[in-house]
Write a protein that binds this DNA or RNA. Structure first.
Lengths: 338, 338
DNA sequence: GTATAAGTTGGAAGCGCTTCCAGCATCCTG
DNA sequence: CAGGATGCTGGAAGCGCTTCCAACTTATAC
């Protein structure tokens, strides 16, 4: 109740001007302590809370940032990755007094409908956009708008964009190298959706590791799993006839699928086929055997993304910022190294 | 670019008043077709987009609704349930031209900090709040505020609240009854966090099914799993010494844990112990054997929650609305009925 | 052809806040 | 104690839009 209270009314009751009342609400200087106390008392007594929209309009900042998940990316909301990322981002927003607006753009129509709202300065002080599929032009449009934007994940073009990513190449390379050191030499790979840079980069890391050991990259040992569990299952089925002795999976979820495919084929992990995957999210420890996997710091990634955005909001988008976060290998059971 | 454009400027360029320009933007009647066309042309040429915050302030509605996940609930963001729910809610928001603000209140401090923002009419036109633990007073405070609010899940008190829930009692009863019909008579239960109504209601359904078959409820066969996979694992370990011949798990995630515990004890599902769980989310089909489980329509639930909220926003909160959605049993491998 | 209704337009008053700026009181410095 | 620096205060002008209302134009009916 009592929400029809306005700043004017508070000022009147405290016997000061609206300007002064505004000053104490925003913790600004130049108010005598006793006056400040008086105003604060009135605010406390009345339960007054400023109207956020009016504040936004007058101050030209909304204290709201948007998280944009483009078309098709949303399918991955089944993957534990996005919830985790969202959690990190939400956490950072809370800590910095920002409100988070979530845009799950599930269709082309959604994109069209929301683009004007999003790209228009006003509602949002800034945007974190998840990279989608290559060729997706939403990022380009957003970067061209006047809303501060940072990209989560490496955008393929747009080298002028500020972005944050994990070191997918090095991470993948580490995982594959581990398998090589265990003596495997027919290492297959289940890739993610190859229209994403994350999938491409992990594939690159896989190739680099093989090449560093003077092994050829055999196309027959590579299959696309689209980052889904069922995709991993099917990819593994395609790989089995080529007798790999180890598999590097670009995500935990796909590794889970691969595990089932291997099991259904009457083979066991890690005895017949060793597995290393990527993510270190809940599926990694739910799986039996538990997955040896390349850990990426998803939560911290989200936090950093927000902090980068706030920096861009505050200090402008030039020069473009860039953060590449490290990964590390977590050794469990599926690689058989114990 | 060109975002410093205002309605005034559009009106000037089209040779009309700001009022008329506003009319065509909001698709209101009482504008001559030719004038309307002229204004629309100017808008198209300039790429003008209205300032959403200014619209909100003037019209007294923001077209933003909030999804509030209270303290501790957020931990369950690991569970696929919340991401799925969020997706349904986001979908409905998109379809109805609303923007979704996400509040993951992870700590008491977060709650304190955001309560004023949330409960104050202005930023949010309405709120969907997920029920948290019993005793949580955030719901009470929100319901007492003047922001339209609907609750997702059955609130324990607050019988005046509008809420939506699935029929947990009937769903659980159906699942347990299925086990009874298969001839099991030492059916244990792994409950969720008993400080939530969902856990309580599923427990009630379990009891009802047993009683309908004149079987006693044996406390030794009941163990709390807190809705997590690890919790399910530990609960199952506690149950094993009491030799259950079947288990009803209040969630898929906990069933996964139970599966592992049973396996680690050298027993097999469904041969030694049959399992029926609740949710029918991705873990149900990822598990081996695949889970027989009570399906709840999470996505549709989210959609309905938003639609209920929009109804409340439009038509007032009295009388309180109430929707109870049906569940149905999905038979797979873990119950051994095939 | 006139009275009346219906449709069209713009002026002006907000929505509830921030912030520039000018005015005044108070403080220091020597 | 003069004079400049500093701190405090409020008036007024916005921020960019919606909407009430009065005025005016055009269609309709008899």
């Amino acid at each position: 109740m009592s929400n029809t209270l306005t700043l004017d009314e508070i000022a009147r009751r405290a016997g000061v001007s609206r300007t002064t009342a505004s000053r104490v609400i925003n913790d600004r200087p130049n108010v005598r302590p006793e006056v400040r106390a008086r105003v604060q008392r009135v605010i406390a007594e009345t339960g007054y809370r400023p109207h956020p929209v009016a504040q936004s309009l007058a101050s030209q900042q909304s204290h709201v940032i948007g998280l944009v998940l483009p078309r098709r990316t949303e399918a991955l909301f089944n993957d534990p990755y996005f919830p985790r990322l969202t959690q990190g981002i939400a956490q950072a927003c809370n800590d910095h007094d920002y409100t988070l607006a979530l845009f799950l753009l599930q269709t082309e129509a959604d994109e069209q409908k929301f683009y004007p709202r999003i790209s228009r300065r006003g509602l949002l002080d800034g945007i974190v956009i998840q990279v989608g599929q290559i060729g997706d032009n939403l990022i380009a449009r957003l970067l061209a708008s006047d809303v501060p934007t940072v990209v989560a994940g490496r955008p393929l073009h747009h080298s002028d964009a500020s972005y944050i990513d994990v070191d997918n190449v090095a991470g993948a390379s580490t995982g594959v190298t581990h398998l090589l050191q265990l003596g495997h030499n027919r290492i297959g790979m289940i890739t993610g959706d190859m229209r994403t840079t994350a999938a491409l980069d992990r594939y690159t890391g896989y190739c680099q590791a093989l090449q560093a050991h003077d092994l050829p990259v055999d196309e027959a040992l590579i299959s696309e799993g689209y980052f889904t569990e069922i995709g991993g299952y099917e990819a593994m089925q395609r790989l089995l006839p080529h007798k790999p002795d180890a598999i590097f999976s670009a995500s935990d979820a796909m590794a889970l699928g691969a595990l089932h495919a291997i099991h259904d084929a009457g083979l066991t992990v890690p005895h017949d086929i060793a597995i290393v995957s990527f993510d270190d999210l809940p599926p990694a420890t739910i799986a039996r055997p538990q997955l040896t996997t390349v850990h990426q710091p998803v939560h911290a990634f989200g936090v950093k993304a927000v902090e980068m955005l706030l920096d861009v909001i505050k200090n402008g988008s030039t020069p473009p910022r860039r953060i590449i976060m490290d990964t590390h290998l977590v050794i469990r059971e599926s690689c058989g190294s114990t």
